[in-house]
């Protein structure tokens, strides 16, 4: 598939901190990374806030089904399945 950037979606469910840490790391090869929070609102503990901010700084897509998730673009659960079809890899966490 060559060196073209991949589009990678990380789906956040129950392990938010590790999912966010991984998402930041996945940007290191120049791929287009987005996160989709389909679980509970992001906890503001540990490195979560920093990782969310870093993803924003890197122009990564940040989507959430929770209105409480600041910095995330709101989506309804009904809109998520079609949006995910845009990605090369989907990594549910």
């Amino acid at each position: 598939m060559g060196d073209d950037p991949k589009k990678i979606a990380v789906i956040i469910r129950d392990r938010q901190d590790e999912a966010l840490r991984m998402a930041v790391g996945l940007t290191l090869e120049g791929d287009e990374v987005s996160v989709f929070n389909l679980g509970e609102p992001i906890d503001h503990h540990g490195d979560n806030d920093l990782n969310v901010e870093t993803l924003g700084d890197l122009d990564c897509g940040r989507y959430s089904v929770n209105a409480a998730d600041e910095g995330f673009e709101q989506m309804t659960m009904q809109n998520v399945p079609q949006k995910l079809l845009e990605y090369d890899h989907v990594a549910p966490y």
């Binding site: 598939m1 991949k6 990678i8 840490r21 991984m22 930041v24 790391g25 996945l26 940007t27 290191l28 090869e29 120049g30 791929d31 890899h89 990594a91 549910p92 966490y93």
Partner: peptide
């Protein structure tokens, strides 16, 4: 390694499973 190795794997893989 680090998350960098994960990024390399995702970048180079044709398919990924979890």
């Amino acid at each position: 390694g680090s998350q960098y190795q994960n990024a390399v794997m995702m970048h180079e893989a044709d398919k990924v499973v979890v």
